[in-house]
Structures are given as structure tokens and as C-alpha cells.
């Protein structure tokens, strides 16, 4: 099995919650056999045969330096270089996962790169496991069973209490889509339309796929209002930084936009864990983001300072265990 047929972007809410909640370390195989670069492909072949696996990581000084796959072995048998050292024939540019990534990354990688397995590294770059599609599907089935059981229980409880007309509660699919009037083309920028109703968007921890939707929605709404470009930019920067902070650091939260007379109020409220040191968090260059988040170009410690600089009023309320609420006001 080479792919995981799950939509990591849309798809049912329950499944989405699962693939963001489960981490690579929750599903990976930790009993990993590796070989040094000096080992021969024959040795790799024997390990694969005896253990029924399809790839062997090559490790030197506790660092992953390559991988020998069953494809490499077949080629070696065919080409007559099965006695060569692994170092000579292994795949060196290995795409890896980090153990604390949510498994939606693993699913995306499997479907995207066509490799059947990805080594998982810990924060220090040490090999701690291997993830295959089978590992992910097994873990997901277990969790889905549990989740379906829970939903069925809730359903039968609801049937027993028989509340007619009561909606299903739970789940956070309350992405209120902005239903904006059509954009006004032409130069009537000074003609300001009626302020739209509040917009509310939900954000999810480590969901880099849909991150930015709230800020995109805000930008569109302000364009329709005829707000001047530099103000739109300030609002978009403040909003995007606060939104990314929720994705990177919080357990999920919401972005609300309130349109007043000549003001945009942004309320970014999350469910925790809260900021331990507010002064540090507002200092440029201070960041608690981990390595793989930084590799995406985030977590440079510029977020909150950027958001504050872009706002006319800015306040931050946070307590550990309670969550963080940021209010940013932009005037135009």
C-alpha cells in the first residue's frame, strides 16, 4: 500500500481532528534495525528478508545518512553489485519526518513523494522510528473505531432523551464563510459600503494547509469595503501573524473580525496552553517554535512584534492553562 486515501484538507471533521491530533511518534515503528554505511547490500537484503521489511536506514554516528530500499536490492541483484557497500548505492537525499509532526504530514508525504516509508527523527536529529502507510492506516482505524463508538453512544443517548429538533453539538466545523457582496470594480474607492457582519474563523494546531484563510477572508472583506491598500496590508499582517501563532503555538482557537466605523477589530482567542513569559514573547527574535516549523519559514520570533507594529491598539491577555486572547485594532 503506497498511499493513504484520506483528504487532509477537506474530509469529515472527525477524521481531520484525528489526523491533526495523532503524532508521527504515536504511529511509527520504533523497533528499527539499521546498518552502518560499510555494510553490504547483501546484509541489507538478509535483514529485509528475515524481518519482512522493505527498507533499511543507514546510520553513522547516530545520524541517518541514507536508506537502502528493496528497489535498490532488486537493481543490485540485477546489475551484479549486491556485494557493494551500502554507502555506494544507498539513496542519500532522504525525506524525513519529525516525530512531533502531526500525521497529516506523513499522509501528505506518502501521497506526494511516492516513497513507501519515511524515517522519523527526534528534535536532535536522531533516528527514532519509521513510518509506513500501513502504520498510519492501522493507527487511524483504531482511533476511528474509538471515535465511531463514542459518536454512536452519543447518538443513542440523544435518541433516548429524544429532543426533537436539537442540532448535533460538538465538532468545531463552525467556519463562518464570509458572504460578501460582489467586489466593486472601478474607481469608487471612496464610496464605503455598509460594514459587513463579524467574520469568525477557526484555526487548528499545526494545520498549515488551511492557515491563512482567516486573513484572506479579512483582506477580501476590506477590499469590498473600499479600504485603502496600506491599511488593508496592516490589517492583513496583524491578522496573519496572530493566525499563524494559533496554528504554531496554541491548541487551536478562533479569529474574529469586527468592522466598526473606520476601525477593524481583530480578536484572536485560543484555548491554551498560554504564554509563560509575555515580555519575552513580544521581543523580536524570541521564539519557542521547533525545528520543522522553522524550516517552513515560521517561528523566527517576529510574529507578535509584527502584529503589534501593524496595529493602532494592541493588547494581549494570557495565562498558562487558560489560553491567550489578543486584541488588535486598526484604524482607517
Amino acid at each position: 500500500m503506497e498511499s493513504v486515501p484520506i483528504d487532509t484538507d477537506g474530509g469529515p471533521q472527525v477524521v481531520l481532528e484525528l489526523i491533526y491530533r495523532l503524532k508521527v511518534r504515536d504511529v511509527m515503528t520504533t523497533d528499527v534495525v539499521s546498518l552502518p554505511p560499510t555494510a553490504t547490500l547483501r546484509e541489507a537484503q538478509i535483514i529485509m528478508r528475515d524481518r519482512g521489511i522493505t527498507g533499511v536506514p543507514i546510520v553513522e554516528n547516530e545520524r541517518l545518512v541514507g536508506i537502502v530500499s528493496i528497489g535498490d536490492i532488486i537493481e543490485a541483484l540485477d546489475g551484479g553489485w549486491i556485494a557493494d557497500a551500502a554507502a555506494k548505492r544507498m539513496t542519500e537525499a532522504v525525506i524525513v519526518l519529525e516525530a512531533d509532526m502531526p500525521i497529516n504530514f506523513a499522509i501528505t508525504y506518502l501521497n506526494r513523494y511516492g516513497y513507501r516509508r519515511f524515517p522519523a527523527l527526534d528534535k536532535d536529529g536522531q533516528l527514532v522510528g519509521i513510518v509506513t502507510a500501513a502504520d498510519i492506516i492501522r493507527a487511524l482505524l483504531v482511533e476511528m473505531n474509538r471515535e465511531v463508538e463514542r459518536l454512536e453512544e452519543g447518538l443513542s443517548r440523544r435518541r433516548r432523551t429524544a429532543e426533537p429538533g436539537a442540532g448535533i453539538s460538538g465538532g468545531s466545523s463552525s467556519n463562518v464563510d464570509p458572504s460578501m457582496p460582489g467586489a466593486t470594480d472601478g474607481g469608487l474607492a471612496s464610496e464605503v459600503a455598509d460594514p459587513p457582519a463579524d467574520l469568525v474563523f477557526q484555526s487548528r494546531k499545526f494545520d498549515f494547509e488551511t492557515a491563512g484563510k482567516a486573513s484572506g477572508g479579512l483582506k477580501k472583506a476590506l477590499k469590498v469595503l473600499g479600504v485603502e491598500p496600506m491599511t488593508i496590508r496592516r490589517a492583513a499582517v496583524a491578522s496573519y501573524e496572530l493566525e499563524m501563532n494559533q496554528v504554531i503555538h496554541s491548541d487551536g482557537g478562533s479569529m474574529s473580525f469586527h468592522f466598526g466605523a473606520g476601525t477593524i477589530e481583530i480578536i484572536a482567542a485560543d484555548q491554551g496552553p498560554g504564554i509563560p513569559d509575555l515580555d519575552a514573547a513580544l521581543t523580536e527574535g524570541f521564539s519557542t517554535a521547533n525545528e520543522w516549523i522553522r524550516s517552513l519559514g515560521f517561528g523566527a520570533g517576529l510574529g507578535l512584534p509584527n502584529a503589534r507594529r501593524s496595529s493602532d491598539e494592541f493588547s494581549l491577555d494570557s495565562a498558562q492553562g487558560r489560553g491567550t486572547t489578543v486584541r488588535a485594532l486598526i484604524r482607517y
Partner: peptide, 16 residues
């Protein structure tokens, strides 16, 4: 840049 993923597009779009 070398950031070849869709968050880069989101940022680009927001700042023009």
C-alpha cells in the same frame, strides 16, 4: 526565496 510551499503564496497574496 526557497520556501516552496503554499504558505509562501498566502503571505505573498496578503502583502501584494
Amino acid at each position: 526565496t526557497i520556501q516552496a510551499h503554499k504558505n509562501t503564496v498566502a503571505v505573498a497574496s496578503l502583502v501584494g
